[in-house]
Design a protein around this nucleic acid. Structure first.
Lengths: 330, 330
DNA sequence: GCAACGACGGTAAACGTTGTCATAAGCAGG
DNA sequence: CCTGCTTATGACAACGTTTACCGTCGTTGC
C-alpha cells in the first residue's frame, strides 16, 4: 500500500476502497500513528489555530466566550489559542503584530479590540481573517456577530421605569468600549418614552470591574437626592453596587433597586439574584467562530475571487430577566 | 546575503556580524516578514503549543489558571491552547488521544485530570510531557505544582472551631477530585485537635458548582440540629450556601457562618465577603508552566539522558482570609 | 474486443525553514 | 608568508506530509 493511499484514507479523500480505508484506520489506531500536524500545516498553509482575544473582562464573560468558540471547534481540527490583551486602545499595532506572529488562521475579536480601527486595518493588510463580537463601528467590516445593544439597554431601563423608578443612577462601563454609548442610548430612549429625563448628576463611570464599580457606586449613593435604583452596564458592577448599598445599611431591593447587563453567571450566584438583560455571549462566540471557519473553508476551496460575498450579519436577540434585585420604589 | 544568514540573524545565532544582524532586522520589519511557524515546527519537532486542560470548574478558577499560564508564556514563542474536558474520569483514553492529536509540546493538567492514572499512563507512552496542578496521588510523577491541601483544610476548619462553632455542616466537592479527601482530612485533624468530632450526619456532597451546592446546602439546613456553620470545599458552593441560608430567612453570619475554599474572585464579590483559604492558582499555573517549559528546553538541548533529574516539587503556601461571613455562634 | 473507469503503485516535487558542509574573504598575530 | 579566527557564502539535505503525473491492473458496459 502506498503512502498516498494512506494519506487519502485518513483524509476521507476519494479513490480509496472502503476496505482499504478500514485497514488503514485499524493499522493507524494500533500503531497510534498521528499525521504530523506541522507538516500538514506547512503544505496546506494552514495552522489550524483560531485565536480568541479579549481584554480584562469579567471571568464569566471570558468563560462564556471561550465555551462558545470551543463548542464550535469541537470535532474540527482547529484548536483555540487564547490571547488576552492589555490596553488595546493605546497600542493596537503592537497587538496586531502579536496576532500575526502567533501564526493563526483567523481570530475572534471580543470588545474592545473589535472596534480598534488600527488593529482591523493591520489585520486586513496582513490578510488575517477576523470575526468581531458585538462591535459598534464599521459594522460592515469583516464577520460580525452582534446583538442590538441599544434595544437591550432600552429593555432594562424600561423595566425600571415601568415599575415606577425615576431617580435612577447609572454606572457606565469602560469608555473605551463602544458598547457603553449604545447601551446609554437605549437608556435614553426608554426615559424619553416614559416622559422622564436622565439626571446627568446621577451618571458615574466605572470600567466593568467589581472594585471600581464598588467605588463609583458608593460615590453615587452619597449624592442627594439619592437614587431609588441603580442601572449598571454590566453584572459585575451591579453586584458591586448591591454591596455598596448594603454597606451603607440599606437593603436591595427594598431601599434601592439594582439592575445589571449581560446575564453573566454572577447575576445568578448573587443574592438577591440580579435583574439583568441577557447578552448571549456563548452563542455570539459560536456564531462568530462558525462563520470565521466557513470563510476559511471557502477561501481554501479556490473560489476566493467571488467567495468574498458579504457575510450575512449575525444578529442575536437579547432577553430580559427580571429577578429579585428590582422592585417598585417605596 | 544568503538565506541562512537571515535565519541566523533572526534567531540570534552566532556567526553573524552585528551590522548584518541589524540590516536583516530592519528589512524584516519593513517587509513585515515573519518566519513560517509550520516550517519551523516541522524541523524543530516542536509545535510551540502548550495545552491547558480543566474540567467544568468555576469561571474564576479557569481564568486564574489561564492567567498564570499565560503570564509565563508571554514573550516566549509558546502559545496556549485551551482544552476543557468533560467527564475525564470515565473516558481517560479518549481524552488522552485528544491531547496527543492536538500536537502539543506539553500539557498542564488541572484537577481532576491530573489524578487520572490512565491518562498519565497514556501521556507517558506517547512521550507527551505534562505538569500537574495540585495532584493528590503519585506525587512523584511528572512535574508537580501543589499546595498542602490538608494543611489548608486544617486552617479553615480550625478558624471555625476557634471562634466557637462545633455543629459544622460540611459540603464536599466532586468526589472524583482527590482534593476533597485531602481537605476533609485537614478538617478532621482540626476537629481532633479541638477535641471535637465531625458529625457524619452533617456532611453532604456537591460537585463544586453553585446549583448543586445550593441544593445540598438547603438540604443540610433542614436537618436537626441545624448547623451553626457551614464549611464548603470551594467558594462557589459557599456562596450558594449563603443564598440558601438567606432564602430560609436567616442571616450570614448572624445565624449561620459560612466558609469556603480557594479565595476565588467570587469570595470577594460576594456579600458579605467570604472567609476562605487562598489557593494560589495563578502562581501554581505559572510554576507548572515554567517547569514544563524548562523540561522541554533541557530535553531539546540534547542532554536528554541525564536531564531527567527529578524536578523539585513545587510547594506553594496557602493563606487564610478571615472576612465577614464567619462570626462566633450565638 | 474495446473503451471507460476505479483502485492502487511508483516517482518526484512542493511547502519554508534550519543544519551540515565545504569554501572563501578579511584581518590579526607570529 | 603562514596560521588561526571571524564572517559570510553557496550547495544540499532534511523535517513529514500532500499533490501531481504516469502507469498498471481488473472490472464493467457496450
Amino acid at each position: 500500500m502506498s503512502i498516498k493511499t494512506v494519506s487519502r484514507a485518513l483524509n476521507d479523500a476519494p479513490h480509496v476502497s472502503t476496505d482499504a480505508r478500514e485497514r488503514v484506520r485499524a493499522a493507524a489506531a494500533k500503531l497510534d500513528y498521528h499525521p504530523n500536524i506541522a507538516a500538514q500545516s506547512l503544505i496546506a498553509r494552514r495552522s489550524y489555530l483560531i485565536g480568541l482575544t479579549y481584554e480584562r473582562p469579567s471571568p464569566s464573560y471570558v468563560v462564556e466566550l471561550q465555551n462558545g468558540a470551543l463548542a464550535r471547534l469541537e470535532d474540527s481540527r482547529f484548536r483555540l489559542v487564547v490571547l488576552p490583551f492589555r490596553d488595546v486602545a493605546n497600542r493596537p499595532t503592537e497587538l496586531g503584530r502579536l496576532l500575526v506572529r502567533a501564526g493563526l488562521d483567523g481570530v475572534v475579536l471580543a470588545p474592545p479590540a473589535c472596534d480598534q480601527d488600527d488593529l482591523l486595518e493591520m489585520l486586513d493588510r496582513q490578510k488575517l481573517p477576523y470575526a468581531r463580537i458585538t462591535p459598534h463601528r464599521e459594522m460592515a467590516r469583516g464577520i460580525v456577530a452582534t446583538i442590538d445593544e441599544v434595544a437591550a439597554g432600552h429593555a432594562i431601563a424600561a423595566h425600571l421605569l415601568s415599575i415606577g423608578h425615576r431617580r435612577i443612577g447609572i454606572i457606565m462601563g469602560d469608555p473605551s468600549h463602544a458598547a457603553c454609548a449604545a447601551r446609554m442610548e437605549g437608556y435614553r430612549r426608554a426615559f424619553a418614552e416614559a416622559g422622564a429625563a436622565i439626571d446627568d448628576h446621577l451618571i458615574v463611570t466605572g470600567d466593568f470591574t467589581y472594585d471600581v464599580g464598588y467605588a463609583v457606586a458608593a460615590d453615587l449613593l452619597r449624592r442627594a437626592p439619592q437614587p431609588t435604583a441603580i442601572l449598571a452596564q454590566n453584572d459585575d458592577m451591579a453586584v458591586a453596587a448591591m454591596a455598596a448599598v448594603r454597606d451603607r445599611g440599606m437593603a436591595v431591593p427594598a431601599d434601592v433597586s439594582v439592575a445589571g447587563f449581560d446575564d453573566s453567571e454572577v447575576s445568578r450566584t448573587a443574592w438577591p439574584q440580579l435583574t439583568t438583560v441577557r447578552q448571549p455571549v456563548s452563542e455570539l462566540a459560536w456564531d462568530a467562530t462558525d462563520r470565521l471557519i466557513a470563510a476559511l473553508e471557502t477561501e481554501r476551496d479556490g473560489s476566493s475571487k467571488y467567495a468574498a460575498s458579504p457575510a450575512p450579519r449575525g444578529d442575536h436577540a437579547h432577553e430580559l430577566f427580571v429577578r429579585s434585585s428590582t422592585a417598585p420604589p417605596r
